[in-house]
């Protein structure tokens, strides 16, 4: 194991700090040079970045196969939509509530299945994601509005008659949330919890033999991941002003899975690159019209051929990853 660093942020070298400042500056300046259309694309890039970061906790840090993450995203979005339209609770108040609702849901549904390994966990999470979507379509207790979803969600209010309602404001809202999440996640990666997660990913039996509470650490990952996905759902719902079940399909879970793997498991800059690929690629190739998804699929295959560890693998994990990726016969990844 490598030595324990007091803080991930302090250890960043000065040159890296300059690079990070440039990136942040570019993100802040971007909306002043782009049209509303491109600002909206960058907004969805932010949503996918947040979703990727949330799945990265479960899949990247702990190595749990979760193909139902859209379910948590949906719970967050619908919590916001229903509480806002029925009771008029402001969106920003609902932000932590949506996160809590998604986290609670994850805790309840994942507790009984957390002992499952590898692909069996994958299929159970997949089933849960589908159950959430089907339940939303079937309109239980007349709450979710069936296949049409819920309409008329407010814009986030800042008080005093100020609303976040333009593309630029939403852009800043999502990227501030993403930035704060990244700061939190970097701290988490270098904490006791982060190391316990990585230990479980590398060797669950050894971790549990060394006194790591495997079950609860796995649950914690699901709960935190779901909470972050719930936050993404909240912002998404207020941006679109409506939510419908077709935004939370199995396909959406697959995209999140790809974001994490294309970027590099457990790597935060990797997740940003993966999210950029997933959200920007279809837009850039829009001139190709019908053929763009063909190109997209081929690009995914090519990427895995030439960079199977992801585009920006996590440095500390470089040695650790070889043990997962080098053993194709292993069942639990």
């Amino acid at each position: 194991m490598e030595s324990i660093k007091p803080s991930g942020i302090k250890s960043i070298a000065t040159s890296q700090r300059a690079q990070i400042l440039i990136v942040i500056g570019a993100f802040m300046a971007y909306p002043f040079f782009a049209s509303d259309y491109f600002i909206d694309i960058a907004f969805f890039f932010g949503i996918y970045a947040l979703l990727g970061l949330s799945l990265n906790i479960v899949l990247g840090e702990v190595g749990l196969f979760d193909l139902g993450h859209a379910g948590f995203y949906a719970i967050g979005a619908y919590t916001t939509a229903i509480l806002n339209t029925k009771f008029g609770i402001p969106i920003l108040v609902l932000l932590p509530i949506s996160a809590l609702a998604a986290a609670l849901f994850a805790y309840i549904v994942c507790s009984p299945v957390i002992h499952l390994q590898g692909d069996y966990l994958l299929i159970v999470t997949l089933g849960m994601g589908e159950i959430v979507r089907l339940a939303l379509i079937n309109n239980p207790f007349d709450l979710t509005g069936g296949p049409n979803g819920v309409f008329g969600i407010d814009f986030p209010s800042l008080g005093g008659g100020l609303f976040i309602d333009s593309s630029i404001e939403f852009y800043y809202l999502i990227w501030i949330i993403v930035a704060l999440s990244i700061l939190g996640l970097i701290r988490l990666q270098n904490s006791r919890i982060g190391r316990a997660w990585n230990y479980i990913r590398e060797d669950e039996t050894a971790a549990s033999a060394n006194g790591v509470d495997v079950k609860n650490y796995k649950l914690l990952a699901f709960v935190l991941g779901a909470a972050l996905a719930g936050v993404a759902g909240n912002v998404y719902a207020s941006k679109l002003m409506c939510v419908s079940p077709e935004s939370f399909t199995f396909w959406e879970s697959c995209l999140m899975f790809c974001i994490v793997l294309i970027g590099g498991m457990g790597s935060i800059p990797g997740v940003l690159i993966g999210a950029a690929f997933i959200s920007l690629f279809p837009e850039i190739f829009r001139p190709f019209a019908m053929y763009r998804m063909l190109v997209f699929g081929s690009a995914m295959m090519l990427m895995m051929m030439f960079r199977p560890g992801g585009f920006w693998p996590r440095k500390r994990g470089a040695v650790e990853f070889r043990s997962i990726l080098g053993a194709p016969g292993r069942d639990d990844g």
Partner: peptide, 18 residues
Amino acid sequence: GRLPAVVSALGASIFLQN
């Protein structure tokens, strides 16, 4: 390994479908 193959399989699926 297995996880890159999952992404590749999804890519193949998108490709065939389209």
